[in-house]
Design a protein around this nucleic acid. Sequence first.
RNA 1: GGAGGAAUGGCAGAGUGGUCGAAUGCGGCAGUCUUGAAAACUGUUGAGGGUCACACCUCCGGGGGUUCGAAUCCCUCUUCCUCCGCCA
Length: 423
Amino acid sequence: MLPLYTLRDNADTIAAAMDKRGLDARPILSKILNLDQERRNLQTHLDQTLAEANSASREIGQLYKSGKAEEANALKETSSRLKVQSKELQEALSAAADALQESLYLLPNIPHDLVPAGQDESDNEVIHQWGDIPGLEANALPHWELARKFDLIDFELGVKITGAGFPVYKGKGARLQRALISYFLDYNTKAGYQELQVPHLVNEASGYGTGQLPDKEGQMYQVTEDNLYLIPTAEVPVTNIFRDVILDKADLPIRYTAYTPCFRREAGSYGAHVRGLNRLHQFDKVEIVRVEDPANSYDALDGMVTHVKGLLESLNLPYRILRLCGGDLGFTSALTYDFEVYSAAQERWLEVSSVSNFEAFQANRLKLRYREGNDKPQLAHTLNGSALALPRILAGLLENYQEGGGIRIPEVLVPYTGFDKIS
RNA sequence: GGAGGAAUGGCAGAGUGGUCGAAUGCGGCAGUCUUGAAAACUGUUGAGGGUCACACCUCCGGGGGUUCGAAUCCCUCUUCCUCCGCCA
């Protein structure tokens, strides 16, 4: 949700930026500004009425004290009348405020200057590519076949226990998974991100805080009995730590990392692209989250990009970085870089990380602010990124590292796995 | 799950129907003093809306109600504490 004050003076600039998303924001912007004006008028009117009512009540108290019961009773009528009036105004005000809120929820974040205009993923800009595409042996297999061959992952067993998209990791597969989580967490911690363990279920307020609600309700698993949601990403619990928080400027920047399983209904997904580990309902991810002074948030974003690059390079996985175009940019993001690893056996790029600056968009919903000295609190900027999502990294490792009838383990992982080869 | 108690400003803690956004203490900030610091003293110190700036309005866990008037009374929800039960 964009802060109102950014909309009041810049409607034209914002509309131009929104065009890059393929969204004509002009109608909704003018609606918002009108509702804002209406809301303020009603508020002023209500405030005046309440001020009158308050002073009448005060006077009644005084009159009673000085024994002038008659005058007091006369004033009560005035007061009652004002009360009825204020109730009506209150209702009109609530209606206007709700309508305003609703419209604000519909407006996505303003794309950053760097965001290219574009329709969909084909318009994303490749800004960086690293590593050699490995030439695989003739009999190279996709990861789902490798997983079966070496008994690393059992997809059918997951179907039996839960359903499609809930794999069971076994033996060295499970161990490799755990090794990756530990390696990622250690790597992030060394870079200054504090490790957290957070709840995997969140309440409604948290869902609204990071913007999963009300729009993406259908994408989350819901525990209706207790009105809780299974988290689709650690971003939700971690960022909500800061809901309704006023930080001291000296506390910034804040950097957290957390491993969690992620649960996504992925309603509407189907086809070959969802085979194996490519798309799951439950998967593991290590996330990094930052809270920044607005003046530094784009340096922070660059820092996160560099960080994820280092992580992928340490695993020697060929990757490229995309700057998402307006049409592919997430609702809440101002600028996003996607990382894709090349899967040689599938001959396609797999998204393994998404690094975004949300500027004040999330902070506004969260009421996450910071204060410098005695100044008024200001909205902070939030950023997050995957470092990294496990399944497609695992897929990339299995496929790119297959050689001589086995799978080699990258050097940096050997201390974590305790073995250097799967065969 | 059962029984009882509680929820007030950054923290502690007064306040049981009228001028209470709320005593007091601690903490924070500014100043006096000091070579500097500490101590002491003085002042200041919640958030949101609104205004050029004031005024003014809202908020004492959330929601609803009683009343001319609610932190204070009533209903309800949530959370926390104590005791009992169950339990990794």
